[in-house]
Each structure stands twice: as C-alpha cells, then as structure tokens.
C-alpha cells in the first residue's frame, strides 16, 4: 500500500464518480482557457493599453480635466443614488417582509421592473417625462430647472437601474427573521428608532452591505440609461463610462483605457468586498444551522 500525499482533507472526490486523469485535465484546461480568453485577457488588455506609453502618460490621462470631471460626476451620481436606494430598499423590504397589505404582490413586481426593462428604455422614459417635449419638461423649463442633459437626469436614471438591489437582498432575509425580535424590543420599551438600530440592523447588516456593494457597482458602471439622458456634454454631463466611449472614439487609447482601468479596479474591489461579505453571510447561516440543531 502506498501512502497518499496529505492534501489537507478539504476536498475528497469519491472514487466512484472520479474521471480518468486525462478527462479531468481536459475539463480543467477548457475551463481555464475559457476564463482566460473571455475574462482575464480583456482585463489584462485594458491595463496593458492603459500603460502602453508608461506610467507618466497614464497619470497624465487621468489628470486630464474632462476625465477628472467624469470621475467626479460618476462619484456624485453614485453618491446620491446609492443612499436613496438604500433608504428605499430598507423601507420596501420592511413593508414587504413584515406587513400584509393589499397590492403587496404588485409592489414586489414593481421592484423587479428595472431588471426587466432595458436600460435604454429606462433612460427614454425619463426623457419622455422630463425632456423639453415631455410632460413635465415645459413646466420645469419655465422655472429654470434642467433635468434631462443635466445631473438630476443622470441621478434619476441611475436610481432607476439600481433600484432593486438593496430591496432584493433584504426581503428574503427579513422574511426569514420574522417579527418576533422587533416585538420583543417594543414590549421592552424600545422606540421605533432604537428597535431598528439595535435589533433589526445588526440582523440584516451583511445582506444590506451586499446590496449596497452590488448597487454601487451598477451605479458606477451604468451606461445605457445614463447615455440617453446625459446629452454627452464633455466635462459636464459625461460620466466615466460615457467618457471612456468618447475618448475611444477619438482614438485616444491611453486616455480611454486609463479611465477604463479605474472601472476595472472598481470591479475588482467590488468582487473582493462581495467575497468577504458572502463569507460573512455564510458564517451567519452556519451559526443559524447550528442553532436549529
């Protein structure tokens, strides 16, 4: 009998379903090859293009005023949209998970609407409503308020497309938690705010964070809806995604890819944060499973 090397005992594949080594290697190579060609290569290409002329021109490109303003606009739009959807998401999840009311199923369906509608359509909706030829456009124009081709429109479009993320994450968890802890807090004399901060929030914090991370990634990466309402005014209404397109169309590859590399970095940070939060969530589920044993 030969001694098998200790692999840590983490994963043991049962002999009965183990494939021959050749098949296993082929499967792994196909998987890795696909991943490499479609995900890692493009990602590497972005950074390669961005640094093609060295680190100096890369930083130069990022310091370009229009790019700086695009970064700012993206941060502002996400900075407004994410908190708005955070507040809305918590309120909607609370209402749906903890109360029975008429029209609940309609509300649930409406929350999913932005997932079902193409972002371009979402942008067009706002143009139709707030644009100069739209329903509210003339009324707003008289008062000197610009929505379309300005920051408010970009924020509205961003809010629309990121609308479901927080609520979608919270609803199942809040439903599984039930009402009892909140009732216990209330009967012990806690007011609504204390109940939320001390009892509800700690129980949903990881789901909430997960929702925020996804929401933020989408808010910063959105192209279609924002593209329709922004008007592409350089240095004013171009978000980072739109600015990348503009630079690319002008054959400014270093600039385009430098800006794109920022979005890629955001994606990587999001992935890492998502992994950490998922790990925390799993730990919590495990604790719950232990409790119910």
């Amino acid at each position: 009998m030969t001694m098998a090397p200790d692999v840590g005992g983490e994963r043991r594949i049962s002999r009965s379903i183990a494939e021959p080594a050749l098949v296993r290697w082929i499967l792994i190579l196909v998987g890795l090859g696909f991943l490499g060609v479609f995900i890692i290569l493009p990602l590497a290409a972005v950074f390669a293009q961005a640094f093609e002329k060295g680190i100096g021109p890369y930083l130069e490109a990022l310091r370009e005023p229009d790019t700086v303003s695009a970064i700012k606009l993206t941060l502002i739009a996400a900075g407004i949209a994410v908190p708005l959807n955070l507040a809305f998401g918590i309120a909607a999840a609370w209402a749906i998970a903890k109360f029975e009311f008429r029209g609940k199923s309609i509300l649930v369906a409406l929350i999913d609407l932005p997932f079902a509608v193409s972002p371009v359509i979402a942008g067009l909706i706002y143009v139709l409503v707030f644009g100069l030829q739209g329903w509210l456009g003339p009324w707003l124009a008289e008062r000197g308020i610009r929505v379309i081709f300005a920051l408010p429109g970009i924020v509205l479009a961003t809010v629309f497309v990121t609308f479901p993320f927080v609520a979608r994450e919270l609803i199942p968890q809040m439903e599984s938690l039930g009402n009892e802890e909140e009732e216990a807090a209330r009967i012990l004399g806690a007011n609504g705010w204390q109940t939320f901060l001390r009892v509800t929030l700690p129980n949903i914090k990881w789901s909430l964070l997960y929702g925020i991370i996804l929401s933020n990634a989408r808010a910063m990466g959105e192209f279609g809806a924002v593209s329709v309402v922004s008007g592409h005014v350089r240095g004013e209404t171009n978000t980072l995604t739109l600015h990348v397109e503009v630079l690319y169309n002008e054959y400014n590859f270093v600039g385009a890819f430098a800006a794109a590399s920022l979005l890629c970095l955001l994606a990587l940070v999001t992935l890492a944060a998502k992994a950490i939060v998922e790990w925390k969530l799993r730990a919590e589920v495990r604790a719950k499973a232990e409790r119910s044993r």
């Binding site: 009892e180 802890e181 009732e183 216990a184 807090a185 009967i187 001390r198 009892v199 700690p202 129980n203």
Partner: peptide, 13 residues
C-alpha cells in the same frame, strides 16, 4: 408588561 414569547425571540446577535 413583561412578555415571554413562544419561541423566546431572544436577540440573536
């Protein structure tokens, strides 16, 4: 009023 819930409803965290 003191209330003891059927499934206790202890604050799990």
């Amino acid at each position: 009023v003191g209330f003891v819930f059927q499934h206790y409803a202890l604050f799990r965290h």
